[in-house]
Amino acid sequence: MKKIINKKNIIAAAVAVGVYILITVLCSAGLLSRHYQSLLVPIGINVILAVSLNLTVGFLGELTLGHAGFMSVGAYAGCLFTLYSDLPTVIELPLAIIIGGAVAAVFGVIIGIPALRLKGDYLAIVTLAFGEIIRSVITNLDALGGAGGLKGIDKSSGFTSVYILLLITVLVSVTLVDSRHGRAITAIRDNVIAAESIGINVVFYKLLAFVSAAFFAGAAGVLYGHNLGILKPNTFDFNKSIEILVIVVLGGMGSIKGSIISAVIITLLPEVLRGLDDYRMLIYSIVLIAIMIVNNSSKLKAAKEKFIEKIRSGNTPAKEDA
């Protein structure tokens, strides 16, 4: 039995608190410009989305292209709740997050049971199709504001609430991945047939990963809605799903740390490149292609490894001398 209070966990907790204090101090001291302050919430939300998507894409190994669909379902459910309820914010917002997450999780089950029978690219296209169906149905429901959007939501969420949800998401994901269930999920990724033959319930664990991802996507959607005060169906289109997928792949599949870092970078990148104006997206796409090729090309990979080895072998004798 592992102890909960060990060195690693204490360091992680210290980092989590430290980052929060650092950012709050920077904000209140005015060292962070208003523009960058406004980016804190989108960054946090993208981190939550990426970490949760990593559960299905990285750990379960199934490609899904409908993450934005779950986000929108959760966002609408949570925001409708706050619109029609009359509780104080302290109770209302957490309740809305739970409701949003739960509704998204229910959709995860409804979509997951049929979709997870399919494999690879077929699963990808079905989740894409579900995402698009959800979007076009929302666009056509007047009760949800239609294409104009759902307006008048309390702007009750800010960096603090996003940061708390982010910590919960990361904590749950890390715990899940490290647990017996998490090992079952990665076993399915590595070899479905082998996993099944040693008695792992493939359908259950696939659903578990899929539904957990949906839950956090929905919860992130709720915070997104409460930060902007308006929800438009078109923000949750196919491109949003792709954006999160790009974050996960760049961060490294199956790496939660990677997802966090790359979510921060990918969200900041277009803003940093803002000075370049029209060339922004062009550069972004070139960087994306270049990273993919450099990291994965078999020729370049060999060259990279040789280079690293050279540095290492160059360093070892130097150490011996010293």
Binding site: V57, L63, G120, D121, A124, I242, L245, V246, V249, L250, M253, R280, M281, L282, Y284, S285, I286, L288, I289, M292, I293, N295, N296, S297, S298, K299, L300
Partner: peptide
């Protein structure tokens, strides 16, 4: 071509990159 032996997901993301490139161009 450089990605022929890479995972399908990598190639998919690259294709998306190409798509962004053509659109922004």
């Amino acid at each position: 071509k450089p990605l022929r032996k890479a995972s399908p997901l990598t190639v998919l993301i690259t294709a998306i990159g190409v798509s962004y490139f053509l659109e922004s161009l």
